[in-house]
């Protein structure tokens, strides 16, 4: 076989994922819920990026003379316990929440894909040992791991990302391994191997593109779950540090403000609405992507 044929074989394989993506995107565009969700997400991201500078207040600016104010013209979403403008804080909190969701997911996807990919590709004994390690880590309660990570290494936003990423990668690793196990038995991989293609190249050119759909789906569905976990950590006081806030920490802080004695409904409503609407959108987008990209669903 000549050099030329090898190139051709590889090019032929490379085309397949491209068509796959186009088809997937077309299918996604026909899913109304997913479409609405993606537009909504773009709006939310834009608002969180631009909003805080347009609101006229700084997110940490206190005014102890106007605490706990219900929404007015001056403060469209009211003020909090230190007289800060809630709208600014919600928009600003969105940055943190989205960042946590996205970066946390990227970290977990990166670890999960590399780990799962290697385990799946190597197979045999190495695979078994690597998956046993995943089993062990699965057996560690999430809360315990994160709290300890936070106490041992101190608290910072960066650490929060790493901690959340570090507990979320397990599922992705398992899924990717399963996919890789399946894909690597297919003809074109066998072929490439027979042609003497180097292992990293096989992984990059042949296997990764074919499991990409699954990874994208899982990553999208992983963002809301990371954001929820951040909210949960905020409830326990382990979330982002003041004066920064996230939707989760705003909602958790506000919980104490709903009691029959006095209901500062705005403090709960706006952060929760922002959080759950975004999570809803992400979930719908994830569902849509799965319908569009997941091979198991392709023929439905």
């Amino acid at each position: 076989m000549t050099e030329q044929t090898i190139k051709e074989t590889q090019n032929a394989r490379l085309e397949k994922p491209a068509g796959f993506w186009n088809r997937g995107l077309r299918r996604l565009a026909s899913d109304r819920a997913a479409l609405v969700a993606s537009v909504f997400l773009i709006v939310v991201i834009a608002a969180c990026l631009i909003g805080p500078s347009l609101s006229g207040y700084a997110y940490s600016e206190q005014d102890l003379t106007s605490t706990y104010q219900a929404p007015t013209k001056a403060h469209l979403m009211g003020t909090d316990n230190l007289g800060r403008d809630l709208m600014t804080r919600v928009l600003r909190g969105g940055r943190v929440s989205l960042l946590v969701g996205i970066v946390g997911t990227l970290i977990s996807v990166a670890i999960g894909v590399v780990y799962g990919g290697i385990a799946g590709y190597l197979g045999g004994r190495a695979d078994m040992i690597m998956m046993r390690i995943v089993d062990v880590l699965y057996g560690m309660p999430f809360m315990f791991v994160v709290i300890l990570l936070m106490t041992v290494f101190g608290r910072s936003l960066l650490l929060l990302f790493i901690a959340l990423g570090a507990v979320e990668w397990l599922t992705i690793a398992r899924v990717v391994r399963g996919q890789v196990l399946e894909v690597k038995e297919r003809d074109f991989v066998e072929g490439a191997r027979a042609l003497g293609t180097l292992t990293p190249d096989i992984l990059r050119r042949h296997i990764l593109p074919n499991v990409m759909g699954t990874i994208v789906v899982y990553a999208t569905l992983n963002v809301p779950s990371v954001m929820l976990r951040e909210a949960f950590l905020s409830f326990l006081g382990f979330g982002v540090q003041p004066p920064d806030a996230s939707w989760g920490s705003l909602a958790a802080d506000a919980l104490t403000a709903i009691n029959p004695a006095r209901i500062c409904w705005w403090l709960v409503l706006f952060p929760c609405m922002a959080l759950s609407a975004t999570l809803l959108a992400l979930n719908f987008l994830g569902d849509g992507l799965r319908d569009a990209l997941d091979p198991r669903f392709v023929n439905r």
């Binding site: 940490s60 102890l64 006081g237 003041p242």
Partner: peptide, 14 residues
């Protein structure tokens, strides 16, 4: 970690 400590610290910081 406490809501009160947090609020006082934020006020003093300001």
């Amino acid at each position: 970690t406490s809501m009160t400590h947090k609020a006082v610290a934020e006020a003093v910081q300001q």
